[in-house]
Amino acid sequence: MDGRIDVRNLSKSFGTFRAVDDLSFSVEPGRITGFLGPNGAGKTTTLRMVLGLIKPTSGTATIGGTPYTQLTHPISTVGAALEATNFHPGRTGRDHLRVIASAAGLPDSRADELLTLVGIPAAARKRAGGYSMGMRQRLGLAAALMGDPKVLILDEPANGLDPEGIRWLRGFLRHLASEGKTILISSHLLAEVEQTVDDVIIIANGRAVRQGTIDELRGEKRVRVLSPQSDRLARALSDAGLQVRPAEGGGLSVIADETAQIGEIAYRAGVPVHELHSERADLEQLFFQLTENTNRNLGDPAQGFAAPQEGGR
């Protein structure tokens, strides 16, 4: 089993409401894929269809070629954490994990191993009702990792985590991806996962509006340079074989990986430089453009998607 998640023409209607509309994507092993969209875009419904909890109106979702409900060892194949509230408040964290261990035929010792792994060993004997949001997220992650699965599906895993927790989660997911696991995480905040994910799938209104690597989304790396002698500098940069265009708000925008390269060209041309920095594509802005005006939960009819822009400005 290669651990690829394959979603083909997946649709789900609740009555007349089309929650997910002809969605297709695949999630590759060894990479972290962000599943992004505003609240109500259909992310959770899609993940629940992948996990066999919701029956699709049409289309298929498979994991390593098999629908979730037909996996022989589901817990050891796919780990999922869907909501931070999925615990009986009167059951301790350790007992919660032991229930899963017994259902999956795993030894009880896995429970304590996992609590240590996610950094909440002290919570073992505490009833889950008394957990903080951060502890719930970690217990959910521990449950997902019980069977050492090849595939991880996490719904809004960063919700409720403090900055330290988010940094911990980021490093933890990196480590898991380096072991070759397939990781799919959903979020309604691109900024939250921007530094974590390799690939992105952006959905709005139940449809995919953008798919690709995060680098593709960002577009080319650019360097912005401000000089009192813009024309001379532009010529020097063009002569060096670089693509230059005037930047919004003054100065020049150059396609280049390093600021040092630009600084050296300016120095050789004898042009003074007042400002020099690498430009980051404003992904949050892009995300907003892709998904704006589409929030059907606000009662605003979708008025055509903003045309997908090339990354960067």
Binding site: Y68, L71, P74, I75, T85, H88
Partner: peptide, 17 residues
């Protein structure tokens, strides 16, 4: 209580049948 505390999700993930 599985419906109430939404543990039915985890139960069905472990036993999808």
């Amino acid at each position: 209580s599985e419906y109430r505390h939404k543990t039915i999700t985890g139960s069905l993930l472990a036993v999808p049948h």
